[in-house]
Design a binder for these strands. Sequence first.
DNA 1: TCCATATTTCAATATTCCTTGAATAATTGA
DNA 2: TCAATTATTCAAGGAATATTGAAATATGGA
Lengths: 122, 122
Amino acid sequence: MDERQALSAFSALSQETRLSIVRMLVVAGPEGVPAGTIAERMNLSASNVSFHLKELDRAGLISQRRQSRSIVYTAGYDALAELVTFLMEDCCAGHPTIRNSVDQQDACCPTSELIEQDDIRA
Amino acid sequence: MDERQALSAFSALSQETRLSIVRMLVVAGPEGVPAGTIAERMNLSASNVSFHLKELDRAGLISQRRQSRSIVYTAGYDALAELVTFLMEDCCAGHPTIRNSVDQQDACCPTSELIEQDDIRA
DNA sequence: TCCATATTTCAATATTCCTTGAATAATTGA
DNA sequence: TCAATTATTCAAGGAATATTGAAATATGGA
């Protein structure tokens, strides 16, 4: 994932409705959720949801399939994972040891890639 | 990090100039970069860069300190790491095994948290 | 103190994005 | 084929964001 794609993904996720939709789809799993159900659950108009779904699709964060009359949307786990990777790379760029001071969750950089003492001169 | 904070972070990162600034600061490390230097390197007006820096600061993605006449900005590694964690949680929510099919980089979910066979019915 | 430097703030404009409701398209069952 | 269901597209208006240049603020040195 390059900066351009990441920008597109961040833009898509930077809107309340869209972030909620993505989270709903992630929780729903590969089964997905039809557009109408999304609108219903979120109390939004069909056209508004459609607008945001298109935006998410453009960013490659979701995919869709027709199932009878409904169009069922699913989270794009691949794209989300790539975004995580992009962020991690950024987070670690040139300064792998920084991660250690970050938090207790090993959120940034796999431990195996850490360098013992990366002397950073301030 | 809750959805609200994540939204704020995504918004901040969803703008070309700001994403570039963050990446520049990450690469620069804890030493940071003065506002003027950022503007210079990116060929942008001082006021424009200032506007975007304020936005990034509001989202908690950078921090600043005065150093003589300059104001030096640094990447907020903590916040970036938290955003990674937020994304990972989303990515894995309720469907830990999905990660395996994602990519070769173990981007999503620590391996230790994987469940052997999480039967997902489509 | 006065001037130069470094940056921010402000106001105005331009641009982009979101929401709404009406119209259009696709699918299924009677 | 007709009507009902499900969704998308379109155009218009409103809201939020970005850019610009000028003015204001803070710092440090002569």
